[in-house]
């Protein structure tokens, strides 16, 4: 249960996993490029990514996932979350630092509250409902099948490019293929 000294949702819940992911993946208020509006956009897109992956988990190395916690843990997709709720020392330290600094810096308290509100809102409110991936800005796209939506707070967000249906050629049932004569 969240308390004043630890405002984060319990770590063994979907909300707890998502809030921690958002806080660790987004630039915080004590970092030079922080912008609250952009941060909210990034967090909403991140929630939408996790929700979209939960619809087709096998496509994102998370076959069998049935919850948001599974999505953040399976397939080695999100740095440091493979053994969630256990986090590597650096990430756990950053979270602890954020929580302790929230008492000193109101902007940090707001940042944490924003993450909790984004996760607990009825819908993500993301600018894109088809967003499927993000990467640290400058590290390249996930692949050819992805299209950049935008860069927010150090991350680039991508949606899947729909694969066009295969073209079929119609031939007469009795016809034989004859190459065109060269002119």
């Amino acid at each position: 249960m969240a308390t004043a000294s630890d405002p984060l949702p319990p770590e063994n819940t979907d909300a707890g996993a998502l809030v921690r992911l958002l806080l660790l993946e987004t630039i915080g208020p004590l970092e030079s490029s922080y912008n609250r509006d952009e941060s909210l956009k990034a967090m909403r897109l991140m929630r939408q990514v996790v929700e979209n992956r939960l619809r087709t988990p096998a496509r994102y190395m998370a076959a069998g996932a049935t919850s948001e916690q599974d999505i953040v843990r399976l397939g080695n997709q999100f740095a440091g979350f493979r053994d969630y709720p256990t986090l590597p020392g650096l990430l756990a330290g950053k979270l602890a630092k954020l929580v302790s600094e929230s008492a000193r810096y109101p902007a940090v308290a707001t940042f944490i509250r924003d993450a909790i509100e984004v996760v607990s809102a009825p819908t993500s409110g993301a600018a894109s409902t088809t967003v499927a991936a993000w990467r640290t800005t400058g590290r390249g796209a996930p692949g050819r099948n992805f299209r950049l939506i935008g860069n927010y707070q150090g991350n680039s967000f991508y949606e899947v490019v729909p694969v066009p249906p295969l073209k079929t050629t119609h031939r007469k049932a009795t016809g034989h293929f004859r190459p065109h004569k060269a002119h």
Partner: peptide
């Protein structure tokens, strides 16, 4: 390769 990066948020290619 890009294919091995897949949809990971953090893996990078040798070229990168």
């Amino acid at each position: 390769s890009d294919a091995e990066v897949g949809t990971s948020t953090y893996l990078v290619t040798r070229k990168w």
